[in-house]
């Protein structure tokens, strides 16, 4: 059974078509780079997969559960980092992560350990007792990522996870995501193509709400050439 099954999903915001009959599947353990120009519909697709937005037409399944018919079961399998990290500025990082952990059903006895585990993965262990509003943008992003990792959900949906990070942090986060391969399925959107080359085996490119490529990275870009993926991306998203 694939981890994600998207069937004919169309999403219209009033008269604007954000997604146009999109169909694709993602197998367990894949790390999928989700690409597309600004406004292509990446964030919209992720909001549908996580059950935040209902599709206008079509259906989406996560871990075999229809996101809108069996929302709780589907959501239990997902860790989600939205475009804007969903943070409460007045809370401490620890308080915030504990709250999200409770919502995700992390058992009370394991909560403290789980918070510390994700904090050390994302390099936020030193700021656990700081107020979120006092953190820099990059640290806020990392707290958002920590939240998605809580409870080790089988599927991670990350909308521009490296946005706002410094080069070193970027490398760390990508390394972290790479380390999740195998046990976890990851779908990550980004505009930085070298990141895709460094972490993903599979790539899905959408343009104006329609998939224009979905294939192994090696097939979309000649690995011997540095700019292969960029060229493919620009060619497919021209028009």
């Amino acid at each position: 059974m694939p981890m994600i099954e998207v069937q004919n999903v169309t999403k219209r915001y009033r008269d604007r078509v954000a997604l146009d009959a999109v169909t694709f599947t993602v197998e367990k353990g894949e790390i999928l780079g989700f690409l597309g120009p600004n406004g292509a519909g990446k964030s919209t697709m992720m909001k549908i997969l996580t059950g935040f937005l209902p599709p206008t037409e079509g259906s989406a399944k996560v871990a075999g559960f229809d996101v809108f018919e069996r929302p709780l079961e589907a959501k239990r399998n997902i860790g989600y980092l939205p475009e804007t990290p969903p943070l409460y500025p007045e809370m401490t990082v620890r308080g915030y992560l504990k709250f999200v952990g409770r919502l995700k059903g992390v058992p009370r006895a394991k909560l403290k350990g789980e918070v510390e585990r994700v904090a050390s993965l994302t390099g936020t262990a030193d700021v656990l007792d700081r107020l979120i509003l006092a953190l820099s943008k990059g640290f806020k992003q990392r707290v958002g990522l920590s939240q998605a990792l809580l409870g080790s959900p089988p599927l991670l949906i990350l909308d521009e996870p490296t946005e706002g990070l410094d080069p070193r942090q970027r490398a760390d986060v990508l390394q972290l995501i790479k380390g999740l391969a195998g046990q976890h399925t990851v779908i990550l959107s980004t505009h930085i193509l070298p990141e895709v080359k460094a972490t993903c085996q599979r790539v899905l490119i959408i343009h104006r709400g329609k998939p224009v490529a979905h294939d192994d990275l090696a097939k979309l870009a000649d690995p011997s050439r540095e700019t292969g993926l960029e060229e493919t991306f620009i060619r497919l998203t021209a028009a």
Binding site: K47, T50, G51, F52, L72, K75, R76, I78, Y80, P82, T84, P85, P86, L87, Y88, P89, V100, L103, K104, G105, Q147
Partner: peptide
């Protein structure tokens, strides 16, 4: 604060 998205995508009714 866009945290509504967090609540609505958590496994919570």
């Amino acid at each position: 604060h866009k945290t509504f998205e967090l609540l609505m995508t958590a496994p919570v009714r």
